[in-house]
């Protein structure tokens, strides 16, 4: 028998979907800014493996010579990015949802088992509540990264007025590197996230829009006398 199982609260769905386009705009406008001084590369033992970014990439995304535009967009949408992030964190703390999200002591060991399971190396995954151990780590890390982007961003936005943040981030030059690295982190997160969402399937995806999942349960052995819609969904 089909049963509606409540999963994601409205506040979580709302902030998730507001964040998605805002973060996209922040990354895009960030690239318009980064282009003006695109000095980061991956170099090991004197050999450069990758330049951020190759010329074809800039051309394909129409990035060159748009620094002023990039700054204007970036310094408008930073407000929305921050506000949305604060709302999400406040909601998570006040509602108690953080208990489902913050990694537990066992999460780090379990996350490894989840990974092995996801890679079809191990047959069973550890028992979980709303989120498995790997999700707990990922969804908490992404919030910490968001805070990191805010702090490193302020450190390079107003390095004199927020000199203590700039100091905290290891100086202006290093803060800019961190700000960039965090953005690369979002892109990697996004790739894994999308793959996982596709693998998890429709029921899971729908729950981030409509809030519920459908589970199939055995009919109860007792004779039902009340109308079924008075029942609380089985948690």
């Amino acid at each position: 028998m089909k049963v509606i199982k409540e999963k994601h609260p409205l506040a979580m769905r709302w902030t998730h979907w507001v964040n998605f386009p805002i973060l996209t705009i922040m990354i895009w406008s960030g690239m318009l800014i980064y282009w003006a001084n695109d000095e980061y590369k991956i170099t090991l033992f004197g050999h450069t493996y990758f330049n951020f970014f190759p010329e074809w990439f800039y051309k394909a995304l129409h990035i060159p010579h748009r620094l002023a535009e990039g700054m204007a967009f970036h310094f408008l949408f930073m407000w929305f990015f921050t506000l949305n992030g604060i709302l999400y964190v406040l909601y998570t703390l006040i509602s108690g949802e953080w208990r489902e999200l913050v990694p537990q002591k066992k999460s780090f060991k379990e996350a490894w088992l989840v990974l092995l399971h996801d890679l079809h190396i191990r047959k069973t995954a550890p028992p979980q509540n709303k989120y498995n151990a790997a999700q707990r780590i990922a969804y908490t890390a992404i919030i910490v990264m968001g805070l990191g982007s805010l702090i490193t961003g302020l450190a390079i936005y107003k390095p004199v007025q927020f000199y203590y943040l700039t100091w905290l981030c290891g100086g202006y030059h290093f803060a800019r590197i961190l700000h960039f690295a965090l953005t690369i982190g979002y892109v990697l997160f996004f790739v894994v996230h999308i793959v996982q969402v596709i693998l998890a399937g429709w029921n899971n995806f729908r729950s981030v829009i409509s809030g519920f999942e459908i589970v199939h349960e055995e009919p109860k052995p007792v004779i039902e006398t009340t109308t079924p819609n008075d029942e609380k969904p089985v948690q």
Binding site: M1, K2, V3, I4, W17, R206, I209, S210, G211, F212, I214, T227, P228, N229, D230
Partner: peptide, 22 residues
């Protein structure tokens, strides 16, 4: 309570509202 919705009706109603809003 007069006209109870079936689970399927509830599902399609909530899907309609949430996906519509989305």
């Amino acid at each position: 309570p007069k006209k109870p919705l079936t689970v399927d009706q509830k599902i399609s109603r909530r899907n309609f509202i949430s996906f519509g809003s989305f």
